[in-house]
Design a protein around this nucleic acid. Sequence first.
DNA 1: GCCTGTGAAGGCATTCACAGCA
DNA 2: TGCTGTGAATGCCTTCACAGGC
Lengths: 199, 199
Amino acid sequence: MQRLPVYLRCLESLPPGQSRVSSDELAALAGVTSAKVRKDLSYLGSYGVRGVGYEVEHLKFQIGLELGLERDWSVVIVGIGNLGSALASYAGFIERRFRIVGLFDRDPRKYGMQVGDLIVEPMERLRAVVVEREALIGMITTPASAAQSVAQELADAGIRSILNFAPGVIQSPEGVDLRRVDLSTELQVLSFYLRRNGG
Amino acid sequence: MQRLPVYLRCLESLPPGQSRVSSDELAALAGVTSAKVRKDLSYLGSYGVRGVGYEVEHLKFQIGLELGLERDWSVVIVGIGNLGSALASYAGFIERRFRIVGLFDRDPRKYGMQVGDLIVEPMERLRAVVVEREALIGMITTPASAAQSVAQELADAGIRSILNFAPGVIQSPEGVDLRRVDLSTELQVLSFYLRRNGG
DNA sequence: GCCTGTGAAGGCATTCACAGCA
DNA sequence: TGCTGTGAATGCCTTCACAGGC
């Protein structure tokens, strides 16, 4: 369920003293209806108490469990330009137990460059690092033209899930789960509605 | 419709010589069904030719029109850390006619810093820049703790749409359209399916 | 009384299937 | 024959509404 991370974020934004939430309250924070919240949460099991609400800490724990937050995930990044570097040192990943364990680039001038507490390595090292550090997730932050071949290299190295930040559509290698984050598209959606409402 | 940008990207990935596409072909590239493609495109008007397919260039143009790609959009960024800097010089925005026209931060040590061809300015300059350069869109790349107040400041300055990259949920100021890009959530979705499939 | 859990109803998006046109 | 455009059917997600506990 795609809304669970949102609920988790909402729960975290609650004042530390608050030990209970109602579905109404959560719904208002998350920007959805209370019925949706209740139905979503009921899939995790019946953790709410009728007439009272949900216990904040318990709910956080259960959502975390559902999302796989109880373990670390190792992640490699290919394409250490501006965006790749930013993601490499993005604090939000650590907090969600995603650990960046390898940085790769095709440009020899970047080899040895330090980003955060990692060193940029050549693509030839990809497989060794993926195996050794047990990475299952890869992020692509190369230019669009390189993304497809990098995806294949990641797959060959043993990566099972890819998050692609390169603009452009690429085909998912066999047996690999692929998601895109298209930054321009996000802005496009905004501009679309802006125009519609007379921007 | 959220899939139009994807179709556009697919059309752009076609070899330059190709002047026509069928809904089947586009569907395969975009990872959807051909019926969906046809229904989506039929909302733009009937630009396909039965028995032949769609004219690539014409379709690109029509989708671009629908998405508002015929004009420039001015964008400001608040929070010039790693991510903010990366977005400030992200080439993909220019290509989609999003022009970054202002960089802002609360940290005086960042004032005057050059990023791309812009200079980081204090928040006090926000309103002036927004008005002068006619920005309607703002991106928030601050830490989570600052995001809510920055959103309000953007709204007060005249920004109508906000893209929030800060982790955590914030409430949309009155009259402002708010979207979130939660990088950790994207990874969480991947790890969720990884675990489900025995990762 | 209050708030959750959940069947039932409703609405929206997807898919089907085929008529229509090149 | 090939492929689009589109009503009809399907299925899924959301919303409603209320019974059931605290």
